[in-house]
Design a binder for these strands. Structure first.
Lengths: 394, 394
DNA sequence: CTGTTAGCGCGTTCAG
DNA sequence: CTGAACGCGCTAACAG
């Protein structure tokens, strides 16, 4: 035990509080403080605060009340260090500025709110992080230090990387579509069904030559396109690739794509857009070109952003339940985190044959003005007047 | 020094890694690991990684290279515990669901992105937190444990509370308007100037009876109203309170307010809206009532959300520089955190006479279709062609 | 310039 | 049921 002199040694921590000066005196900040106050040891306080059955109930109550009276809160950092977990989930926004899918989409913020609420309810903190697709964001997902798991947006940019991470056993969940060769867990709306419903609706409205605006490089858009394709097929309509225009998730891109489509002189009487923002851009371009919406061209969007009901013409669109999406993302991730990976194999080749979980959120077609044609029989949903996003009778 | 038996004691930490099983063997996770590899002590590694001048440059280089080769990263939790700081900033969304100022406003997400980028650049983490105005969110702002400081949205709900927190010396910054009796630091756009510019523009367009839609309970809206008032005054136009309708930040509320205004039979030929979302709701209500925009009523919004250029009619609005806003919020907060509060007084009554800092971001009027009247002389700003939030000539 | 030591605040083993 | 001691991973003070 060497010398073990009392003298100094590293007393370390930066001296705060110039001796007996400020700081509401008697402020109890550590377990030791509380223990002194309660006349018990630190261990007992720790146990009491963690509802351990090892402590006498009366003692526990007394300590808990004392703690709340002094507004005492455990130091999360120390706790995390000791427990080797962070109780934190990182939301990574993998956004390619180039792709125009910026942070502007209102839909994303709503989803983020849902995630925040759910995490909070389950006792987790939410760390927000932006990252460029090319960068080294994935390293910390593989060996997390600041968080226990991640929720990732921006599937399209890095599908291969995500697969690799999943193979390596990294704890994360992705928002997006379900891809055929996908090793990671994900949550997304029923993109295929949504695209199909949108297209069917246009067909019911009498449209026969329907275009599609979206970037098939994005899985969500590609799945919506697949639904579009199916709907045409089941109606016996031909799929004309000349009516497809790759379009990024921005109004500007939508305007360009639509103008291009118009100038191509291909006749068309309907448009399925991969997002509301795209739909609005398309409508703008159509009107500038003298085509009436929905008279000449009927348009359907996707997302049902809050503004969709308040533009002119109001936007027919596919609504996804964002609150449910947030909950699903969190619950899926936490179930993954809180139960050990159940190592069947020697845990080296984690690529077990099991399908990764995927939650599909139901969608609902909200019919408004932008798609309503005169000729065809009116769909069952009347028209919306106002309401926060929704539908009402007009 | 008591007995000090080697035997056991709390060996504590939950046993991970069943001895010599998985986990890419030789994985170096702690300073001790790296020290062993480098043949030096832990302290030296620590110093090297922190670029301390106390370490030989060659040694430092060697260690740093070794670290990056093994993908070693310091354990932030342990570091924070030791250093008594968290390198984390909490963004608190204080949002009253009732008030309809939900998470939907695209503007908020953009600002959040700017904050995230700036924090990341300055080496801080971003903790995101939602809170209800009534709740006890403020306790942790007063005695932060998980973060070093906070950026708060939702000034209106809790102005008095924010003042109290500032008086107590809590480290935070607020997004919003500058209020007359305000003890805390804040950043906001030039609401007064923006409202004034919007109103002047309508007057230049020939409007004579201009209404205002916004909730004066919100400081930002109130300041925009003040600018509106000033512009009327300088043009010698009367201020008619019958043309004001309290309106919350939602499309629904805007539709109601506008209908109410129309039904009041008060004549009006212009509308200043406290946000783009409000403006869009107003336009919708006007059109449903058979009033043309801008023909019968010219409308100006606020924020220049990305969609503003893509609706019909495209929206004249006041643009604020959100990226600059994010930077300003972060820089202001960090300057407050990183320099000690400079205790002049015994630090009990922090209510020093100094004005709290307030950053005002410049605004710019973006003229589009919703306000352009035929008769009047065209304003100096022609039309914006594109830029990030573009418009095409039409 | 480098190694040794102590401790940030907590949870946990083991002994009583 | 309670207390004493130890260590999670890191950095500051001290001694060489």
């Amino acid at each position: 035990m060497t010398d073990r002199t009392q003298k100094g040694g590293g007393r370390g921590a930066p001296a705060d509080e110039p001796a007996g000066s400020i700081g509401r005196k008697g402020n109890v900040r550590t377990i030791a403080d509380l223990a002194r106050l309660a006349g018990v040891s630190g261990a007992t306080v720790s146990r009491a605060l963690n509802d351990s059955p090892l402590v006498n109930e009366r003692t526990r109550r007394r300590i808990q009340e004392l703690a709340s009276r002094h507004r005492f809160r455990l130091n999360a950092r120390a706790r995390q260090l000791r427990l080797r977990k962070t109780d934190t989930v990182c939301v990574i926004l993998l956004i390619d500025e180039e792709a125009g899918q910026g942070l502007s989409d209102p839909f994303l913020l709503e989803l983020l709110g849902g995630i925040a609420d759910r995490l909070s309810a389950r006792g987790y903190d939410l760390l927000l992080s932006r990252a460029e697709p090319g960068a080294d964001w994935w390293e910390e997902v593989l060996h997390p230090r600041r968080f226990d798991g991640a929720i990732i947006f921006g599937q399209a940019c890095e599908h291969r990387r995500l697969n690799a991470l999943a193979d390596a056993g990294a704890p994360f969940v992705v928002w997006g579509g379900r891809l055929p060769d996908q090793h990671y867990a994900s949550v997304g709306s029923d993109n295929l069904g949504g695209g199909q419903a949108a297209t069917r609706h246009l067909i019911e409205q009498g449209c026969r030559r329907i275009g599609f605006l979206g970037d098939l490089a994005f899985p969500e858009a590609a799945l919506r396109w697949e639904g579009y394709r199916l709907a045409l097929e089941e109606a016996g309509l031909p799929l004309d690739e000349a009516l497809y225009r790759p379009t990024r998730f921005s109004g500007e891109s939508a305007v360009r794509a639509t103008r291009d489509l118009i100038e191509s002189a291909q006749p068309f009487d309907g448009l399925v857009a991969a997002s509301d923002v795209i739909a609005l851009g398309a409508i703008r371009a159509l009107e500038q070109a003298g085509r009436a919406v929905p008279g000449d061209v009927a348009v359907v969007g996707y997302d049902d952003i809050p503004l969709a009901a308040y533009v002119h013409p109001s936007l027919t669109t596919v609504r996804q339940d964002v609150a449910a999406g947030g909950r699903a993302l969190v619950d899926l991730l936490l179930s993954r985190i809180e139960t050990p990976p159940a190592r069947t194999a020697p845990a080296s080749q984690q690529a077990d044959g099991q399908e990764p979980p995927h939650v599909i959120l139901p969608t609902r077609l909200i019919v408004r003005q932008s798609s309503r044609r005169d000729g065809a029989f009116t769909p069952r949903m009347p028209d919306d007047a106002d309401a926060s996003g929704p539908v009402g009778h007009d």
